[in-house]
Amino acid sequence: MTDQIAEAKETIYQVAEDVLEKLAFLFSFREEERGPMDYGSAVVASVSFTGQFKGRLLMAVSSEMLPELAANMLGIEEETSPEEQRDALKELINVICGNLLPEIAGRKQLFNVNTPRILPSGEIEAIISDKNPAATAKLALEEGQCDLILYLDDAGPGVSLEPETPEP
C-alpha cells in the first residue's frame, strides 16, 4: 500500500501544479519537508466524490493569496469580491479533483464530483483530527502556501488505490 500512497501523492503534486499554472497562472514548488499549514490563516475548500472509491479532497490556500488567485482566474486587475475569491478557490479544487481521480483510478472509471464548498474553521479541525489522510501534498506559492489533503472512505472489498490495469 505504501507504493500506491506514494504514487497518489505524486499524482496530486503533478495535477495540482498543472492546474494552478493553467487555470490560475500561479507557479508552485513542492515543500515536502515542511509541516502542515496553519489552517487558521488559510481558506479551506472541500469537495467530496463518489465512484470506484469515495472520499474527499481538501485544499487550503493562504488567505493572502486569494485575491491574486481570483484576479488571475478572472483575468482582471480590479479588486475581486470575497464571494468571487471563494468561488475561484471552489472552482480550482473542483478542476484539481476532477483531473486527479481518473489519473489515480484510470479512465475506465466513472466518478461523480459533488459541489465544492468552503469549510468553516471548526469543521476543518474535526476532519483533520478524525482520520488519517491517504495522501498530502504541500506546495509553496509565490507569496503563500497551499496544502492538498486526500481522504478516502473505508474501502470495501476489491477497492484499492491501485491504478487499474489496462484491459488486454
Binding site: N94, V95, C97, G98, P102, R107, K108, Q109, L110, V113
Partner: peptide, 9 residues
C-alpha cells in the same frame, strides 16, 4: 467543457 476523464461518458 469539463474535467471529465471517464472514457465511457
Amino acid at each position: 467543457i469539463s474535467t471529465e476523464g471517464s472514457e465511457a461518458r
